[in-house]
Design a binder for these strands. Structure first.
Lengths: 347, 347
DNA sequence: TCGTTTTAGTAAATCGTTTTACTTGATATA
DNA sequence: TATATCAAGTAAAACGATTTACTAAAACGA
């Protein structure tokens, strides 16, 4: 591949001049500039990335660490981060931690295990000298990724950072739980059951808070028996449905679509139907929610927006790095209810 | 970050020795080796990636170009490629072409458009000096990615390469069509309809071939009216179903699960049920197929295996690069029928 | 005309490794 | 004893860019 030296020789100037024309601030006569640019264009010269990265101590690479690429939430977030970075002339490098057990359909919850994969991943990225690191979580655990004195800009996406030194971009779970509950109330429901996620999960906790708030605002007495904790999986929706039916609820708010599918299973088996015998709402707006019959009303997680916003914040903080801004924040992106056919008005 | 020179000073040896211990072939006494290794371990020294890449002309990076990261087929393939590469001590860098229109649910079919995105992507990877490039297609078009005299090892995955100079890893579509047809025949069906993909698509064509072959082998006269071409989308499954029902088929083989879902839509609307009134089979084993009621019998595409196999071939070819092997080949990975509840025995 | 400033451009150092060719002292060989 | 071999290690060049400090020539001001 053609080198800067060769271009310089062709143009009869020194490499310094080439470099200056391409990205320097020094004065160069318009004549030589044009001459050089023409040769560059013709030869398709591109600076050697490694030489460049070595000389400047900046690489224009943003590292992305993902808890698991296979999880449905990851690709759309990552896709947007990559797209935005590309537009802003940054490259990205992706490290996949593979923390999701595809067969068990569950995350490795062990903090030790997580750290034992995360730390090498971070080291890897540091050794590549990335300009910044974006950690893309897969589920709502509070993440302790980076030490407070971490030397490169870093942030946490789709989950909360333990340290307040790092910005995190999350969905507004409390509002999500609130909105969905309000929506069900507005359709006439007052006995609203919840099939929640795992109890120690941040998504679960905040959505429950929102649920409580909505109930409270409408003067509905909060009944603990109306909340059943599941494990995000279809089967636990099935279980929860049976229990909540006994409580006499008229609507069930599931904290993900998979558990809503489990509820559908139960109804199907017992000759009942969502949107007729009982109202069902989900969360996520996964692919499957359009395919359930009747189609599932659910609260859509705006993965694309999360991705874009994250990249935006990262690159902005890279730009203003001179003034070392301590402006870490928690950015909350709202979800949006997608109305389909699984919720009916209670007469 | 700590440099080789510093390690050398700490150990009272030259950098050459450090380098030699870490990856050279020259003799070093066991004593110094241990001493150095200990210091390396303690300091957490990692060679600067850019300096290394510049000096060796090898980067140990494999470039992955994906037609679209958002498509369901891409993540599992890419995940396996990355995992295998990591195990073999290669890094990967991912370039996403974003060729799938999320809103229209369709690929940019325009060859010009494809090339206008592909060529910069390739240039980008070459400028990074990747050791090899893996092109991960998203749908079954014959790809003309690389010129015959392309200087780095390259291959095409999940679609066919136009040039026979490049290895491609694909699913065995003909066998897939054959197997599924045979399966339906074995369950007693003889009037088997097909809802195919787009007519010019390689997946479509080869699966149709397999279908024909199976019919032929069982002495069933091939009836062109039993094949309806769709566009891979749900709606076209719906259409096709209505038409095939008029033909009096007893089973429908859909070339993807999305169209099978469309068939389910039709049946649902007309008060019929898959697996009872008619047998339905899909292709892909997408997430949704487990959620359809009754669960869909389908032909699973082994994305993980495709990914692993691809990475394996790439890295092998990188290893034996000395003997410039002209062993380009087409590797066909078989699919596997997942029996669920949508196919019944015809009495 | 003489000194000063500006313009256009360059030589050389530098970044952190790897690798080649060389050195030194010890040991084996004839 | 003289020579060849060997083990252990090093100096220095190389990779390809960027950047600093410098220079030669031209332009300017008084």
């Amino acid at each position: 591949m053609i080198t800067q030296k060769e271009i310089a020789d062709m143009c009869g100037v020194s490499t310094s001049t080439i470099s200056n024309i391409l990205n320097g601030k020094l004065k160069v006569s318009e004549a030589t500039r044009q001459r050089v640019l023409e040769v560059v264009r013709k030869t398709g010269y591109q600076p050697n990335y490694f030489a460049q990265g070595m000389r400047k101590q900046k690489t224009n690479i943003i590292g992305i660490i993902t808890e698991d690429l296979i999880q449905f939430s990851s690709p759309p977030i990552i896709e947007r981060i990559m797209a935005y970075c590309e537009d802003m002339n940054y490259r990205t490098i992706l490290v996949n931690m593979r923390m999701y057990d595809k067969w068990l359909n569950t995350w490795y919850e062990d903090e030790k295990k997580l750290q034992s994969v995360l730390q090498p991943a971070i080291q890897e990225l540091l050794s590549i000298k990335v300009d910044g690191i974006i950690y893309v979580a897969g589920h709502g655990r509070i993440i302790n990724c980076f030490p407070d004195d971490f030397k490169v800009p870093a942030m946490v996406v789709y989950s909360y950072s333990k340290s307040s030194k790092f910005t995190s971009v999350v969905i507004d779970d409390e509002k999500g739980g609130y909105d969905m509950t309000r929506y069900l109330i507005s359709r006439g429901h007052r006995k609203i059951g919840v099939i929640a996620g795992t109890a120690d999960n941040m998504h679960t906790q905040k959505r429950c808070l929102g649920y409580q708030k909505a109930l409270y605002e409408d003067g509905i007495l909060y009944n603990p028996d109306w909340i059943r904790y599941g494990d995000w999986q279809r089967e636990s929706g099935y279980q929860g449905c049976g229990q909540l039916l006994n409580e006499g609820v008229t609507a069930i708010f599931c904290m993900n679509d998979d558990m809503a599918a489990g509820v559908y299973d139960y109804l199907y088996e017992h000759g009942m139907k969502a949107g007729e015998d009982i109202s069902i709402a989900g969360y996520d707006n996964m692919e499957i929610s359009k395919y359930l019959k009747p189609a599932l009303t659910t609260n859509e997680i705006p993965f694309s927006e999360i991705g874009t916003k994250s990249a935006e914040i990262m690159i902005r903080s890279l730009m203003e790095e001179s003034e070392d801004n301590e402006s870490a924040e928690v950015v909350r992106i709202p979800c949006q209810i997608i109305e389909r056919d699984s919720v009916r008005d209670l007469k």
